[in-house]
Every structure is written in structure tokens, then in C-alpha cells.
Amino acid sequence: MSDPGSGLAVEVRGLTRVFDAVPALDGVDLEIPRGAVFGLLGPNGAGKTTTVRILNGVLDPTRVDVLRVLGQDLPQGADLVRPQVGVQTDTNLYDRLSARANLSLFARFYGLAKKAADQRADELLDMFGLLPRAAERVEKFSKGMKQKLLIARSLVGAPSLVYLDEPTAGLDPEASHELMSYIRTVSRAQHTTFFITSHRLDEMEDVCTKVAVLAGGVIRAQGSPAAVARAAVPRVRVHVTPAPGVRIAPGELLALPGATHAESLDGYIAVDLRSVRAVPEFVRAAAALPHDLLGVADVPPTLQEAYLALVGSQPGAPDPAPDTAAQTGTEVAS
């Protein structure tokens, strides 16, 4: 059904959506390889849910050059794509039906016979720890339980592409953790593609093989979390950890070649360097100091720092990182 020649699950170019003369999305480009765990990050109102809706043919774009999902051009190919896709967004379940009936119903929409659908429902209820409550009406469920059920519902059709719109909202930490492990496992074992939007940057950094930062309807950066972070955050930082009992003054390290800033923290000294190229010489010089060291570790910037740098930099604002590709939305290599 899908074009096997294309390695992309989602390909979008020049996507624009205008609501009441205000663009919610303004020329968005996305490329998501099959089997990727893709994270779309962005502040409230950035256009994440709008993107998910358009990618599922449930909302029309105002303008788009390429809109291809699982090898099918939308909207023409929507009926071929939907059977292969599962979607969880911030919607409600059927409150007056049981948990099992909610899942079984959707399984039937994906073509399962009644009995197989009930079986599939129970399988997923079990996976999310809800099997003991399977026969209860959903209206009695807690917020987190409903959220689990919505996620389970997106998986009933054994989809090859899953959209999860803020899946961990309302989930307890252990459930979030389990969901992330599940996503990692399934994406590797079954080559399932995940498209996740989230405000939990720590989780996204962990689980995503690719992220894009969307703000003001524009993609600010796209690539692996590490590449996006490196491109968006100009600083290069190393942690120098002295051996127990050894004291090093930050000034000693600041005097070494390439160092621009040094600060003593809890058991180590954080040193900012001019560039990545300055690292080897700095490490040699640090090792040559008359102090015993436990190690010198490269500390890459986090996705969180990158996000704040990118989202904080509104168009027209002073450029925080003039020589990175991030602000222009160019793809950055991992």
C-alpha cells in the first residue's frame, strides 16, 4: 500500500495553515524517517496539534507543496493511510461505555471481527494495567487512567505510524517511564514510527531519534536531539573533576588555553571553552597541571537549553548563535 521506495514516514514541505487571517503554521518542512521516534516541541499555541490534524487529513492546509504520509499524498490518499495510523490527541472517550467497549469499538474500525477486537482490547488493557477495571464505565476513571486508555486506543490497529499528542500529560512518573520504554522497544523491534508532541523535554531527549522545535508556526531547528542542542547552544562545556582531597581554584583552569569561563560547583569545576576545537588542547593542559584529576568530561548542551534558546529567540530578536543553522530551520546533521 505504501511506497516502499521512500524511507520517509512523513514528508512535509511548505505547510501553511491560516486561522482567521493569522497563520498558525507558516511554511513548515518536516522529514521523518520510518522507524524514527520524532518529537515535535514547541510552546503552547505553537501549532503542534494543528500539525497532527493536518497530517491525518482531518484539517485542510491553507497551502502546502508536499504533504506525504506513508508514501501517500494527502488528502487523496487519506483512506489508504488511516488504517496504518493510530492517533491520540486531547479528546474524550465514550464515557457511557466500558473501557473494553471503547477499545474494542476502535479495533473494529480497524477491521477486526468482534471477538478478535475484544481480545485486542484486553491485551492493551492488560498492558496499561487497566484489565481489572475493563468492564467499568469510563466516566468513573481518573484523568491518568483515561489518558492511558486514549493511548491504548491509538494502538489497537497495530499501526505503523503512531501520533501521540502530549501522551504523558496526566500520567504518573512510572507510567510515563513505561510508555517511553514501550515506544523505544516497539520502534526498534517493529520499525514503528512515532510522532510525539510534548513539553517534557527530558523525556523527549531520551526517547527521540529526531526532534523539531516549532515556535510561532515556524520550525526553528530539526535533527537529532544532540545535534539540535549543539547547534542552538553555542557554548562548549567540560567538567573537570579533581581527585578526592585535591583543591583546584577555578582561576587556574580559566588561565588555560581556550577557557572563557570557570566556576566551582559541587565536587567539580565547570569550564566553558571557546569552541569544540579548543577542547583537546585544554584537556592536555589540564592534565599537565600539578593536580590529581578523576577526569575531564565533555558536557554537551541539553535539549532543554536548546529549546529555551530557540523559543526565546523570536524572529527579529538578537541572534544568540550567529554561526549555527538552527534559527533558519535548516536541517542539522547528527
Binding site: 482531518v58 488511516r82 493510530g86 479528546t91 474524550n92 472517550l93 465514550y94
Partner: peptide, 14 residues
Amino acid sequence: ERRTLEGLLYTPLT
């Protein structure tokens, strides 16, 4: 009104 319709629209139902 009950916010269940969007979920239905994502399914393979034509």
C-alpha cells in the same frame, strides 16, 4: 459537544 468526534475522524472509517 462531548469531544469524542475528533477521535472518530482519525479512524479508518470512510
